[in-house]
């Protein structure tokens, strides 16, 4: 009996037994750190309402995940920080003037319907933050009100009544014109747009951090942005090819989408070839929607559509089993 007692204290589990310090939590923490520069940029360009909207969104996402787990009596995993990332990304793809109740409903949709009902993190088919944004187009006027940048135009924390609206560079480009803002402004983020998407520079800093920490590989973002660059260079809607290409690449949510959303582990392919095809697909769809679509911006819908193709893209570029006959491998 004495021996049996010790036996029960052993933890018996199946292999692998090797441990890695990388967990979902550390990855998500790195993503949050990488998003920080863009948030600071958002606060600088649009005022403290940007911070407030982001915090509300993050809090709502975490709360809804916790509440869902409570109600369904499921194991609660809010400490993996994935809900925080979803909340931050959702806020980043909304205009800074969005009312708080709207972003809370967006968080509800993103977390409960898109993520938890499909089985939680790892089982969702599409990116929750982008699906939340798509759902928020239920209020199209709210989602297409763009405040002018600058300290004096910053919307109030509680009231957005007397804001100065402006056209975004994307709206200009959608009409086939060069944006009124300079390319430099667009690169730095000194233009109208969603809360966290305007500054290509700050997003690229986050990209660099993620690459250094090896959280993501450059395959999807490079394939995505490269495709958009090539297509817009080949088919410019103006006289200056280079300027048009730069404006398209820096404008709208392309950087944010390509770096932080298209690379979502759950909703992107696992094979190298699959990832490249996925990135190219996102790029082609983005350009098609920007050129021919009804909306100004195509990034979110392009990524959502490609998310749905991931199950197919995962089949291409699979490594051949060692020692498998060629014919069988082809099958």
């Amino acid at each position: 009996m004495a021996q049996m007692k010790y036996f029960y204290e052993l933890t018996i589990s199946s292999s692998p037994h090797a441990h890695t310090p990388i967990t979902t939590q550390t990855i998500m923490r790195d993503v949050l750190i990488a998003l920080a520069p863009a948030l600071l940029g958002g606060i600088y360009f649009f005022g403290f309402r940007a911070l407030a909207v982001t915090l509300v969104s993050v809090a709502a996402c975490v709360f809804f995940e916790w509440a869902y787990c409570k109600i369904t009596k499921a194991h609660c995993k809010i400490y993996d920080l994935s809900a925080c990332v979803t909340g931050a990304l959702l806020a980043f793809v909304c205009p800074v003037t969005i009312p708080y109740w709207t972003i809370i409903l967006g968080a509800l949709f993103a977390i409960v319907i898109v993520k938890m009902l499909f089985g939680g993190l790892g089982k969702n088919i599409v990116n929750p933050a982008l699906a939340g944004r798509a759902f928020l187009f239920s209020w199209p006027v709210i989602m297409s009100t763009w405040v002018s940048v600058g300290y004096e135009n910053a919307p109030g924390l509680l009231s957005t009544a007397d804001i100065v609206t402006s056209a975004t560079p994307l709206a200009n480009m959608h009409q086939g014109m060069m944006p009124t803002d300079s390319i430099m402004d667009m690169f730095l983020g000194n233009v109208g747009g969603c809360l966290g998407e305007t500054s290509a520079l700050l997003l690229l800093i986050g990209f660099g951090y993620l690459l250094v920490r090896k959280v993501i590989t450059p395959r999807i973002p490079v394939a995505y942005i490269g495709t958009v660059a090539v297509l817009t260079f080949l088919f410019p809607l103006g006289n200056d090819r280079i300027a048009w290409m730069c404006a398209q690449v820096c404008g709208g949510g392309l950087m944010l989408g390509a770096i932080f959303m298209a690379t979502d582990y759950v909703t992107s392919p696992v094979t190298k070839l699959g990832q490249i095809v996925y990135g190219v697909g996102c790029g082609v769809l983005t350009v098609m929607i920007r050129y021919f679509g009804g909306y100004n911006e195509g990034v979110s819908y392009a990524i959502l559509v490609m998310n749905c193709c991931v199950v197919l893209l995962d089949r291409i570029g699979r490594p051949v089993k060692f020692g498998a006959p060629r014919k069988e491998a082809a099958k």
Partner: peptide
Amino acid sequence: SQFPAMQMVMPV
């Protein structure tokens, strides 16, 4: 009238 989610009467 400003609150309802229009997407609910759309296909989605």
